[in-house]
């Protein structure tokens, strides 16, 4: 069972308490955006085999959103962090890089 620690309330919640909401750090294009940008925002996804940054919501807990870094090949959780950011924290990226030397790094 997947267990993620909610950075908002500090609880280590198992996945039945959480809701997954896909790729994090997507640029949310709005009215007036080009077709390419809207397609990118609404439909295109990195879907990597390996390190994935994603949005989660602690639905049956504090109710707040947060981000997680996870490996889609092993289900290893590298860490969680607050949602109020445009990219993952530097120390988390460094930690992942150490564990996965072949990883290309965070790409938006």
């Amino acid at each position: 069972m997947l267990i993620l620690t909610c950075p908002n309330c500090g609880i280590a919640a198992d996945e039945t308490e959480l809701h997954a909401d896909g790729q994090a750090h997507i640029t949310r294009h709005g009215a007036g955006a080009s077709d390419d940008d809207l397609e990118e925002y609404l439909f295109m996804r990195n879907n990597p085999k390996g390190v994935h940054f994603e949005r989660w919501r602690h639905v049956y807990g504090c109710g707040k959103w947060f981000h997680a870094a996870r490996c889609t090949m092993t289900l290893e959780v590298f860490g969680t962090y607050p949602a109020q950011t445009l990219e993952p924290p530097k120390d988390l990226v460094a930690k992942i890089k150490k564990k996965r030397p072949d990883w290309e790094g965070f790409v938006k």
């Binding site: 069972m1 996945e15 997954a20 896909g22 990597p48 994935h52 994603e54 996870r70 889609t72 289900l75």
Partner: peptide
């Protein structure tokens, strides 16, 4: 389906 990205060919028990 499970809600999260996964390549392990294993799903969640719940």
């Amino acid at each position: 389906t499970d809600g999260f990205n996964n390549y392990t060919q294993r799903g969640s028990f719940h």
